[in-house]
Every structure is written in C-alpha cells, then in structure tokens.
Simulated scan of single mutants.
Amino acid sequence: MADRRELLELFYNILRRMKKEWNKELQHGINHSQYLILKTLKHSGPQKANELAEAIQMTPGAITGASDKLVSEGYAERKGAMKDRRVVYLEITDQGEHILESMIENQKKATERFFEGLSDEDISHLIRIYHQISNNLDQQAP
C-alpha cells in the first residue's frame, strides 16, 4: 500500500508543479479560466455563458467575471443573437486568437521540458499508462 501512497503523493506534486509551469506561460494577466474560455471559443465558436460553463466546468457567474476581463482586454467580444437580442454570445477576437496561439506554443514548449531526459522506452511506458488512465476515466464517465 505504501507504493500507492507514494504514487499519489508524486502524482499530486507533479500536477501542482506542471500547473505552476503552465501558468507561467500565460500572458497579459490571463488566468487559467480565461485561457480555457479562449480555447473553447477558438475550437467551438461563439458560446453563451451557460454553454461555456458546462464545457469548462465553471459556474455561469464565474464565466461572466472571467469574460468581463477578456472583453475589456479586447480578447473576446459579446454579441447579441440576431433573432433574440436577449441572448448574448461570447466570441474570440483576432487579438484573442493571437494571444491564445502564443500561449499554446509556450505551454507546448513547457510540456516538452517535462519529458526531457526520458528514454524512448520510458515514453512508450508513459503512453501505455496514460492510455490506461484515460480508459479508466472513460469507464467512470456517466
């Protein structure tokens, strides 16, 4: 059982440290939630606050607060729906796409540094392990 305890401690420690490194790569005062919003908007197109909240597992109120900052910085804009002006969509701007691409590239470089020094065999083992973890998560999903 001690091995599992050590595994969990290492896992949580690595997750914390990876998140810290990834957060260093965020620019212009954008936090992780705002990054996720921009990423979702880039890949899924304009979204309502409740759609974004569901997609990135935040409350609609938290989405509104995070979105306010993105709008004020020019990284996103709010647009009313053509048929019903009460419905408001958040949309990424060109400036938001530019910042997002820069952050993704920086995070990719940071992630590559995490795996420096690992042999091809170690990488193969990690890939196998990550697939198993992913399968375990898929089986637990509703």
Rank of each mutant, 00 (worst) to 15 (best):
I99L: 13
E91V: 10
E77L: 13
F114G: 04
K83L: 15
Q107L: 02
I123G: 05
I123M: 10
H125F: 12
H98L: 14
R85Q: 14
R78E: 14
H125Q: 14
F115C: 09
Q95F: 02
M82E: 15
E77S: 09
K108L: 13
L90W: 04
Q95D: 13
F114I: 04
V87W: 03
K109D: 04
E121N: 06
V87M: 07
D84A: 02
D84C: 08
K79I: 15
L90M: 04
I92C: 02
D122Y: 04
R113N: 11
D120K: 15
K83T: 14
T93H: 03
G80H: 11
D120Y: 09
E91I: 08
R85W: 10
Q95H: 01
S119T: 09
E91K: 13
R86L: 07
M82Q: 14
S124W: 02
E91R: 12
R86P: 03
E105Y: 01
K83F: 13
E97T: 09
R86N: 10
A110N: 02
K83R: 14
G117R: 09
S102I: 02
K79M: 12
Q95Y: 03
D84L: 07
E116Q: 11
S119Y: 02
I99D: 05
Q107S: 02
E101G: 05
S102N: 06
A81L: 12
V88K: 15
I104R: 11
Y89V: 08
S119R: 02
E121Q: 11
I104S: 00
R86Y: 05
S102R: 03
E77Q: 11
R85G: 00
T93G: 04
D94N: 06
L90S: 07
E105N: 07
G96F: 04
E112V: 07
M103L: 07
S102Y: 05
D120P: 07
M103Y: 00
L100S: 02
I99Q: 04
D120A: 14
E121P: 00
I104V: 15
I104L: 11
M82S: 14
R113P: 04
N106K: 07
A81Y: 08
A110D: 05
V88H: 05
F115G: 01
E116W: 01
G80Q: 15
L118G: 07
V87N: 01
M82N: 14
I123F: 05
M82F: 15
G80A: 15
D120L: 13
D94T: 09
F114K: 03
I104K: 12
A81V: 08
G117A: 03
